[in-house]
Amino acid sequence: MKITLRVNGTDHVREVEPRLLLSDFLRHEIGLTGTHVGCEHGVCGACTILWDGEPARACLAFAVQAEGHEIRTVESLSPGPGRLDALQQAFQDSHALQCGYCTPGILMTLTAFLAENPHPDEAAVREALSGNLCRCTGYQHIVDAVLRVAAA
């Protein structure tokens, strides 16, 4: 069926099967490969996007369901070509990523979290991160990056 999805402020019209997962739509239909897929059962968080501003798993929704909603992916964070937003910059400065596979999902979770809690303490940051798995970093530098942004 034909759908129009609004992603990062742009409308995308595609012919899709109802069963196409939103994560596959973003990655393979419209080429936004920044959203990653690590489990397809909602646990790892790599596919986290913003759904009307709230963090949600792209692997647990069908693309057809996103019609009429505002979807935001990691590609929308950068303030301009080649630039990083404050959170992304803090990630680089704190060495908060290694392989970087979990990173887009974590950035989306944290973008929503910081909008609601601009000055969290470490415990709150860890709690907020607990729905995203990272296998490389042991999380410490990610926590540091968030605290860096929170302090700014």
Partner: peptide, 9 residues
């Protein structure tokens, strides 16, 4: 129950 990302939907 789960995580905020799950509770959104």
């Amino acid at each position: 129950v789960a995580h905020p990302q799950i509770r959104t939907r």
